[in-house]
Amino acid sequence: MTNAILTGLMLGGMYALIAMGLTLQYGVARIMNLSYGEFLIAAAFASHWLFTGWAVSPFVGLVLVVPLAFVLNFAIYKLLLTPLVRRAPNRDALEVDSILATFGLTFVIQGSMLALFGGAYYSYSFLAFPVQFLGETVAANRLAALGITILLGLALYLALTRTRAGTAVRAVAVDPFAAQLVAINVPQASALTFALGGALVAAAGVLVSTFLTFSASSGVVFTMKALIVVVMGGVGNMLGCLVAGLALGLSEALVASYVDPGLTLAVNFALFLAVLLVKPAGLFGRATR
């Protein structure tokens, strides 16, 4: 039982981490980024390349990959998405436009990765030894990933709730019209938040690559998972992200160990549906918009 719960918590922590970036991009910048998972896989490949080619530890890899992802995502927002933002008559229209544009981007990134790395599965061995934790044996790499996830999540939560800049980011999510009345440069804040979301998913990619095998085409799985967590938790809500991610991870682990591992995906969606039936705006979402 402890083992299943521990596995579930680690899995759930990872889901929460994966979803944090998307909830920022979707909640604040109003970009429904369907290519989100591709960025995760791209970061995983980057980490793989750094580790196997240059013997760079993924912890150091984080320091290299995450800022690069921030810059790259900022550029993507400025070059690719700003024209959409400009022409969209309202934020709902932007949502639809951004779905189409990022759907296209999915194929560009995935195609590039297929061309570079082929369709094979990749993995590398980092901290792949067992450790004792709460009386259970777990892989050290998963435990390390969980630790970093908790640190990142906590840092993000504090930044969003305890600083003026973070509060301003939330204000854009709540009401972009009113945001400009308190001297917030909304287009700039949206671009930076989108980039921050990209940096977070890159961090997730590096961490995931230390304990999961991945291929150039596994991005969509992560997009789906992130989307489920974001919608289930309530768009733009960090706490919702955490709770929904953990709920998803725990339910998967419990079902896998006590019912049937083949049912994990079914449980995912059953939980998702159940939450949306009871709270259509998500666990921590507002009923009206």
Binding site: R164, T167, A171, V174, A183, R286
Partner: peptide, 27 residues
């Protein structure tokens, strides 16, 4: 120059304290 718009334009999901904090957002 500050505008108090029709319908108030406050950040409904944020606290009173946070709204005032953001009011002082201009340099």
């Amino acid at each position: 120059l500050a505008l108090v718009p029709e319908g108030r334009g406050i950040f409904g999901d944020l606290t009173v304290k946070e709204n005032l904090l953001l009011g002082a957002n201009p340099k």
